[in-house]
């Protein structure tokens, strides 16, 4: 019970801090549509052009705007997780980290609370951007299996949250969370196939990219939405995402307890 209380408390704290005024809340509500317009102006020159999508036996040419949009949206979500990952650094810089660690609250619950809150925030950004795109572009969506889409998006979400837990655990120990979080964003955007088709990468790099939940999520969602793939077609990345969802939180839990113990032993918890 206390686990969920802590999770809820963190979730609420995140939102109250983010939207402390009506003005902030208002801008947050309209931001996704502004983002959508920005994407529209960016992708307009490429409209009706095709890009190869070669994965899991599929070899199709899909609309570049749809291709990039899906990449962009899932990447936005990844950035959300990365930002949430530096939560403890933020706590440290505002002087509340020690007060938090003084409590017997579950560290996992604290992290998940922040990650869920960040996920909810970025989910709105994504939904808003999708709505904008649907209005301005006539995307050639071929959706044959909505349940596969829901499952893929859900697992991508959970795997990325799990990745966020691991990142938090690493960041608490390095005390360079903001820097590392920012440093990670561009390389991951590149290698996960957010903008470029991953088939363009050399084979050795391709294998590594499969370790990133974002890559598997992109393959799965793109095939389902743009190539009409069903759950049977995308079982491999779906299982990959499921495995990451199961393994990464455990890894994160171990990392965070190890990081806290180690930081306390080295005296680096309160130093910033």
């Amino acid at each position: 019970m206390s686990f969920f209380r802590v999770l809820r408390a963190e979730f609420l704290k995140y939102f109250v801090q983010q939207f402390v005024t009506f003005r902030t809340a208002f801008w947050f509500l309209i931001l996704p549509f502004a983002n959508g317009l920005l994407f529209y102006s960016m992708y307009l020159p490429f409209s009706n052009r095709l890009v190869p999508l070669n994965a899991l036996g599929f070899s199709v040419a899909v609309d570049i705007v749809g291709f990039t949009l899906i990449g962009q949206l899932l990447y936005t979500f990844f950035v959300g997780m990365s930002v949430a990952g530096v939560q403890f650094d933020n706590e440290r810089s505002q002087g509340t980290f020690e007060a938090m660690l003084l409590t017997p609250a579950s560290r996992m619950a604290i992290m998940l609370g922040v990650l869920f809150a960040a996920a909810a925030q970025y989910l709105w950004l994504i939904i808003g951007a999708v709505i904008t795109f649907l209005i301005f572009f006539r995307l050639p969506i071929i959706l044959n299996d909505p349940s596969a889409l829901v499952l893929s998006v859900f697992l991508t979400y959970t795997a990325l949250v799990s990745l966020g837990i691991c990142l938090e655990a690493v960041f608490i120990h390095t005390r360079r969370g903001v820097m590392l979080g920012t440093m990670l964003q561009e390389p991951i955007a590149f290698v996960s196939g957010t903008i470029l088709p991953s088939s363009a990468f050399p084979p050795f790099l391709l294998q590594i990219t499969y370790l990133i939940p974002l890559t598997l999520g992109l393959i799965s969602v793109r095939l389902i939405l743009l190539a009409g793939a069903t759950l049977g077609d995308v079982l491999l990345p779906v299982f990959g995402l499921l495995a990451m969802t199961l393994v990464l939180p455990l890894l994160g839990k171990w990392l965070i307890s190890h990081a806290e113990a180690s930081a306390k032993a080295q005296g680096t918890v309160g130093l910033f």
């Binding site: 109250v16 801090q17 509340t96 938090m100 017997p104």
Partner: peptide, 30 residues
């Protein structure tokens, strides 16, 4: 069973109200 109060202006969330701060920590202490 313990708690700590440190001098200086730390250990509080400035964007939350006093009541919200206390409620938040009460939840963390279960």
């Amino acid at each position: 069973i313990v708690n700590m109060v440190a001098g200086g202006e730390r250990m509080l969330y400035y964007r939350l109200t006093g009541r919200e701060n206390l409620r938040y920590f009460a939840e963390l202490y279960d």
